[in-house]
């Protein structure tokens, strides 16, 4: 199959999936209790004002017409307004997504750093100490709820040892001048070491929390693929040819393992970029996840929809990019 055809087909699938997600999310948010018109004008407003606002928002229309209007808006890049923050949702998200991306990226790097080496080592040395460690850590990481792990880390490193700062948002120091929206990057660009430190220390515990829970399944996947590869014919051939063990692992086995593992990493990254509701909630970090949950509990339609769509989009996009990369790298997928 030609690359262009493949990309187009995958893009079409992605649009269909996004359409499905938007439809379900739209219906669900319209079922949320409470008329947003009341929330905008207040409970003291007279009936005619409420009716006027309801009509302006299009809430009196049948639901399919409301959905149609929403899609039209969406096509012009308008995600609606939040009545809670009184901002366009695009503005709110623009202010919050960097916090999520910054945390998600740090968490992914940490997760890859511990899970892949551990997975590989434990596959090579079965029943060794590192294999047992990998088993215990991945079992623990898969089983502990994110929010509980975050709280335990805060209990130990903030409340008891007092090494970590309190979980109060993105920074307790100065907010660096806005360039990228990532506080750590902005602080480096501005050459402000203090601001960088203040922003970075706020990220350590949430990033570690996510790195543990996201890295845990990756240990298992890496170990599984590595074992499979080490038992394969081409590794046996390499051994028979007298290739040194080190070279077998690094040159012959590892590339085969990194392909499926990178897919897994990409899926995890997509998940992290979509906003990690629980961790942002526990660490009071104003990202997409926190925005979504604050909006849900106050029946604020537009931000909830936007957060869901954004989350689905980041997942699908990362997945798409990985698939295209595989298509280019691995000839076996081209059938």
């Amino acid at each position: 199959m030609h690359l262009a055809v493949y990309v187009l087909r995958r893009l079409a699938y992605m649009l269909v999936a996004l359409f499905g997600v938007s439809l379900v999310a739209f219906v669900v948010t319209r079922l949320l209790p409470g008329n947003p018109a009341y929330m905008i004008v207040g409970v003291m407003a007279d009936e005619s004002t409420v009716i006027a606002v309801t009509e302006r928002l299009g809430l009196n229309l049948p639901i399919h017409e409301q959905y149609f209007r929403y899609i039209q808006q969406l096509a012009s890049g308008d995600l609606g307004d939040s009545w809670r923050t009184r901002n366009p949702v695009t503005t709110d998200i623009g202010a919050r997504w960097p916090a999520t991306i910054e945390l998600g990226s740090a968490a992914l790097v940490l997760a890859l750093a511990w899970s892949i080496p551990l997975g590989i080592v434990s596959a090579l040395r079965r029943r060794s100490f590192s294999d047992r460690l990998a088993n215990a850590l991945s079992g623990f990481g898969v089983s502990i709820p994110e929010f509980f792990l975050g709280m335990i880390l805060l209990l130990v490193f903030f409340a008891t040892l007092e090494w970590a700062p309190p979980a109060l948002g993105r920074t307790l120091g100065d907010v660096p001048p806005h360039t990228t929206g990532f506080y750590t990057v902005d602080a480096i660009l501005a050459g402000d070491w203090e601001a960088f430190k203040a922003a970075a220390v706020q990220m350590i515990l949430p990033a570690v929390t996510l790195a543990v829970t996201v890295g845990a399944p990756m240990v298992r996947v890496t170990r599984g693929f590595m074992r499979e590869t080490m038992a394969s014919h081409h590794i046996r051939s390499a051994r028979a040819l007298g290739v040194p063990e080190r070279s077998i692992v690094l040159r012959h086995a590892l590339p085969n393992v990194l392909l499926p593992v990178s897919t897994m990493g990409a899926i995890m990254y997509g998940y992290l970029l979509g906003g990690t509701v629980l961790v942002e909630f526990v660490f009071a970090r104003p990202g997409i996840g926190k925005y979504a949950i604050d909006s849900i509990s106050e029946s604020d339609f537009a931000p909830v929809l936007a957060a869901v769509l954004l989350s689905a989009l980041s997942y699908l996009l990362v997945y798409l990019i990985m698939d295209i990369l595989h298509f280019v790298i691995d000839p076996r997928t081209r059938t």
Partner: peptide, 24 residues
Amino acid sequence: LRVSESFQAFPTLLLALGIVAALG
């Protein structure tokens, strides 16, 4: 397959939260 793919793209917790918030 398409439907379950859509579901896979859905942020699980947000979906569950939304429905629970909507239906009580």
